[in-house]
Simulated assay, not measured.
Amino acid sequence: MSRARGGDLEAYEVLVARYTVPAHRAAVLLGAGDDADDVVQEALVKAYRQLSRYRGESGFRPWLLAIVANETRNLHRSRRRRDGLALRAAAVTEPLRDEPDPADTVLARDRRERLVRTLKLLPERDQEVLVCRFLLDLGEQETATALGVPKGTVKSRTARALGRLREHLATEEVPGA
């Protein structure tokens, strides 16, 4: 460790070889999914850049795993931002060229806004699967790959999420009713 802190790249390579597997396991368990490799790589680069801050009080492994945990949290935040963008993009409607009645456009926009607003009330897992399946128009296998879950999990989550969405929509007040 002291050689790595002194700038010895070969010494740091030994640390990387020793701690990559536990770092990857931590990233997966913390929810990085298919992005675990990227999380670990970023964590190892940050650890190298911050070696001068390492005090050795708790060992290199826990210090590195703390960086992995922070990188995984950053990944979750960026996923939420991305999903939020997808929800906002779905809420935006552009007038259709062949739209016969402007009132239909207004009603469709209102329904879409209500749907997106209600979708945001659902738990994050429900939002993710519904956004992938219906707003991004991904198939079950594509959704499974995107979320890092089995195809059967996508099917069951979709069914449950649609049920919850229907319940929310049914209980929401309808304007003018």
Rank of each mutant, 00 (worst) to 15 (best):
A43C: 12
A43F: 14
A43Y: 14
L44M: 09
V45K: 05
V45W: 13
V45A: 10
K46I: 08
Y48F: 14
Y48K: 04
Q50S: 15
L51C: 15
L51Q: 11
L51I: 15
Y54G: 10
Y54A: 11
R55H: 09
E57A: 12
S58L: 14
S58T: 13
P62K: 00
P62E: 04
P62C: 06
L64C: 15
L65N: 10
A66D: 09
A66G: 11
A69Q: 12
N70I: 03
E71W: 07
T72F: 07
R73E: 15
N74L: 02
H76K: 10
H76R: 10
R77H: 13
R77I: 09
S78F: 06
S78Q: 12
R82M: 15
D83H: 08
G84Y: 08
G84V: 03
A86P: 08
L87D: 10
A89F: 05
E94A: 10
R97H: 14
R97C: 03
D98S: 02
D98K: 02
E99S: 02
P100W: 00
D101I: 01
D104L: 00
T105Y: 00
A108P: 01
A108V: 00
R109I: 02
R109L: 00
D110R: 03
D110C: 01
E113R: 06
R114S: 08
R114A: 03
R117N: 09
T118W: 07
T118E: 06
L119W: 15
K120N: 13
L121K: 09
L121N: 09
L121D: 13
E124M: 14
R125I: 11
D126T: 08
Q127T: 11
E128D: 14
E128N: 11
V129P: 15
L130M: 12
L130P: 13
V131I: 15
V131C: 07
V131Q: 06
C132F: 04
R133H: 14
F134S: 08
F134Q: 11
F134P: 13
L135D: 06
L135G: 04
L136A: 00
L138C: 05
L138S: 05
L138E: 09
E140N: 06
Q141P: 04
Q141E: 10
Q141T: 04
E142N: 06
T143R: 01
A144V: 00
A144D: 03
T145D: 03
T145I: 01
A146K: 01
G148E: 01
V149H: 07
P150K: 02
K151W: 04
G152H: 05
V154Q: 04
K155G: 09
S156T: 09
R157M: 03
R160Q: 07
